[in-house]
């Protein structure tokens, strides 16, 4: 089931959601078996910020009915640490690499986009304008004007595909249209839905960060609606995600107009979930496994 995403050839339509699979840590746990049976047709990095971040204080996780609230807080090595230490290793993965970036100003986004885009290991960039854990992330992605002016700032810096990742916490269609008009090559959605949980012991909010973002099957029906509305409103490619746990769920998103689907939380339950979902998809479409 070969697919194309903004000119990047993919062996099948299943990639990972940013921040839900660390290929370097996974190699520590599984060794070369990971590379031999890599679960995704492209690898999307965790979101990188200009400076290093250690992330939110624990606890960072809360399980909900068929879902997960996370308040991770974007821990990462920062742009320089990522370029020096992680990028060379991610460049050795057997699939194209998409790097996700997030800044809190146009200057920061410019630094990130130009620093990442000039590296030959990178096939495309994803602009995270939707992370619910960091206040500034939501502001851009909740406003069509902010989104358009961010694209105006970074679009001239690279010819590589720019994917804009939307938040489900504001109506996504106007923001998607603004991103397309600013020259985005693709839209991805949904990021997590803002959510919280209380300490069972009565000590107030459970999460160290106060609140977090909900993912998993609990958000699937919302993702399906938002993906279909955005796909109907723009003519650029859509990467659909949110609660995908089976080939059937992935097929629903493709049916709704997504070109590619991403798997996030399901990989936590089974690190090889992406492979299983891709082969369930190709079985559905009556094609031979792409494995």
């Amino acid at each position: 089931m070969a697919t194309d995403l903004c000119g990047i050839e993919l062996a099948h339509p299943v990639v990972n959601g940013s921040g839900t699979f660390d290929a370097i840590a996974a190699q520590r746990a599984f060794g070369d078996a990971l590379l031999e049976r890599f679960p995704f047709s492209a690898f999307v990095s965790k979101t990188i910020t200009p400076e290093p971040r250690s992330g939110n204080p624990p606890p960072r996780l809360w399980e909900t009915p068929s879902g997960l609230i996370n308040s991770i807080g974007l821990p990462n090595k920062g742009l320089d640490g990522f370029l020096a230490e992680d990028l060379p290793r991610l460049g050795e993965l057997p699939v194209p690499l998409v790097v996700s970036v997030m800044g809190t100003s146009h200057d920061q986004f410019r630094r990130l986009v130009s620093g990442v885009a000039e590296r030959e290991e990178v096939a495309a960039l994803e602009l995270n304008v939707s992370c619910p854990n960091v206040e500034s992330g939501t502001i851009v992605g909740e406003s069509p004007d902010e989104t358009r002016s961010l694209l105006d700032a970074v679009r001239p810096l690279t010819d590589k595909p720019l994917i804009v990742k939307l938040t489900p916490n504001a109506p996504p269609v106007p923001v998607a249209i603004a991103a397309e008009s600013g020259g985005a090559d693709a839209i991805s959605l949904i990021n997590t839905l803002r959510a919280t949980a209380m300490d069972p012991g009565g000590a107030g909010p459970w999460l160290g960060g106060g609140s977090g973002g909900l993912s998993g099957p609990a958000v699937r029906a919302i993702a399906l609606l938002q993906v279909s509305e955005v796909a109907a409103a723009v003519s650029i490619a859509v990467v659909g995600m949110g609660g995908v746990a089976s080939g059937g769920d992935a097929a629903d998103l493709l049916e709704a107009g997504a070109a590619v689907v991403a798997v996030g939380t399901e990989s936590f339950r089974d690190p090889a979930a992406g492979r299983r979902i891709a082969s369930e998809l190709s079985a559905r479409f009556g094609l031979s496994s792409s494995g």
Binding site: F21, A25, A26, A29, L61, L68, P75, F268, P271
Partner: peptide, 11 residues
Amino acid sequence: ACGFGACFGCA
């Protein structure tokens, strides 16, 4: 959530 370094939840 994951056990293999994917979620950054076990800080």
